[in-house]
Design a protein around this nucleic acid. Structure first.
Lengths: 205, 205
DNA sequence: CCAAAAAAGTAATCACTGTTCACATTTTTT
DNA sequence: AAAAAATGTGAACAGTGATTACTTTTTTGG
């Protein structure tokens, strides 16, 4: 990932600072961990004064909320792309897209579920999370992070939980330490295949 | 939970500072979130100078590692207690113990999986995580966080993933926002019951 | 077209954080 | 009882998020 620095040499205005800050968050989070991401660190990486960030985000939480929002949208896009193609077992492939996104962009996956860093009243964030929720409905869950969510059926929740748990264990480092990307995905596929019997006869399957 | 303050009025030595700091971490994490827990905040809550903490823990990470270690041990104890009683469906009950622990002590559950806050080379931590791993073996997983872990069977990993994912979704706030404790557990039970067909004929079931 | 307003940057400063260090007090050991 | 070890205190340090007054650039309306 290439960071957008300044447009030309030493221009006063950066031009894409809001965008660049999001990229810096991911860059630093992937390298040093989400907890280690610092507003000043992001600003320095981009080559801008720390206080410039506050012209685009009210505070650090707003920046992370925007980062989580982007994560939700990217994940949704990936699942949509997967679902739009014909597959023998749609749930399996969409579930694997969920896992793959988590493994490949672990900082984003962690950020989108770390509620302490997110402002849930943010409009963009709410919209993105509801959109992902609608997508999961096509896969295995109706409504995500919604106040008046209908109760998912046991099979739907089981499907979501399995996929989410599998991804979390990989991302948290509790699983697959010795496996490369392909190995993790193969392991995940075998696990989700084993879920088949529990979903048989469901629209989810 | 009552915090241990000072033994008598204004005694110079606290007497149980290491222990008290761990309790303070949980207290503050449950109230304000794990990210908001501060060494100085813990010290102030106990009524001690900030620098006193460093006589018992090398740094903040060491304190959190001890906290995660305690979490692993408490969870292991709870699962052991559940497994030691006769049940019609042992996996189901042990899995529900996992979920219940996460819901009731969410700060601990979050801390034990937040690898950025943990020193994985800590001897106590390693021992506790291996012990929990051994317990999961009786339930559904052989080896946790182990370098040379054998590959879990798809069914074993599926069981662990489902339980872990379910707990995570509850703890992260993505699920069950409108449910009380009993409601969440009932929801979890229904979900894990639905996993039955996938585990049929396994030692796990 | 250009002055005025808005947008987007800077530098200095604030309170708070983790951490260290020299020192004080208590407890334990010899 | 003296010495040593353990466990506390208080004052510092650099790094953090955040605010403020100010500067520079871009956009806009008569």
């Amino acid at each position: 990932m290439r960071l957008i620095l300044r447009h030309k040499s030493s221009r006063y205005h950066h031009g894409h600072l809001a965008e660049s800050l999001l990229e810096a968050v991911e860059e630093l989070a992937e390298r040093f961990g989400l907890e280690a991401v610092t507003l000043r660190g992001c600003a320095k990486l981009i080559g801008v004064a720390p206080s410039a960030a506050f012209k685009h985000y009210r505070d650090k939480r707003a920046l992370f909320t925007a980062f989580a929002t982007r994560a939700l949208r990217l994940m949704a896009a990936r699942m949509t792309a997967t679902a739009s193609q014909p597959h023998e077992h749609p749930f399996l492939e969409v579930g694997l897209a969920y896992v793959a996104f988590g493994i490949e962009r672990s900082a984003m996956f962690q950020a989108m579920w770390r509620s302490e860093l997110i402002d849930p009243s943010d409009a963009d964030y709410r919209q993105a999370s509801q959109h992902l929720g609608a997508l999961l409905a096509g896969g295995f869950a109706e409504s995500l992070l919604d106040d008046d969510q209908r109760k998912l059926s046991p099979q739907e929740l089981l499907a979501w939980s399995s996929v989410h748990g599998l991804t979390s264990l990989f991302v948290e480092g509790a699983l697959g330490a010795g496996l490369d990307h392909a190995g993790k995905l193969a392991y995940a596929r075998a696990t989700l295949v084993a879920l088949g019997p529990s979903l048989a006869g469901e629209t989810v399957a």
